[in-house]
Amino acid sequence: MKSQIKILCYCTLAFALAGCAPSASTRPDTKGGAGSTPGAAGSGTDSRAGEGGRGGARESDTGASSLKQLQEGKSPITPGSSPLKDVYFDFDRYDLSADARTVLRANADWLKANSGARVEIEGHCDERGTNEYNLALGAKRAQAAREYLTSLGVAAGRLSTISYGEEIPVCKEQTDACWRQNRRARLVILQDRPTS
């Protein structure tokens, strides 16, 4: 699976912390210290958080919230360069598969290394079934991801959840492949919170 390769790739990079952005030339100041203004590294959307969470983890690293993307007419897709990867679920399920746990462990590592980042976990569903049930199911998916991340040592206070049910799909065709992409928990960096 392509996503698994990406995950492995990411893990390696996360540990090495060589800056996992495709364009490593814009690595931000990782030693900026407490006073550094988050996001001061110009307009670079691929600026990356530095070790220890003192750099600015940015909303643009993960893409904005799916609602904001919808409002701006953009796809709520998580960019391939995002340090926080989507996790996927089976139809009408909210338990975490082995794959999902692998992805979340990598996400947890990044979150622990970037302790300034506050993250909203979005629960999404495919279009099948009724809207309200899917809102509840999406909430379960987001919560399952949140609980696993906290069990791995990420502070619960940094993780909020929201469910968009089937309302903001990333793929709109009526195919199994498309539905699979929509049954996800997506992690979005809410804002910079530099350690002081």
């Binding site: 309200e132 809102l135 909430a139 987001a142 919560q143 399952a144 949140r146 609980e147 959840t161």
Partner: peptide
């Protein structure tokens, strides 16, 4: 009303 809190509805 349906209330979702902490993942439970």
């Amino acid at each position: 009303a349906t209330l979702e809190s902490g993942g439970n509805t």
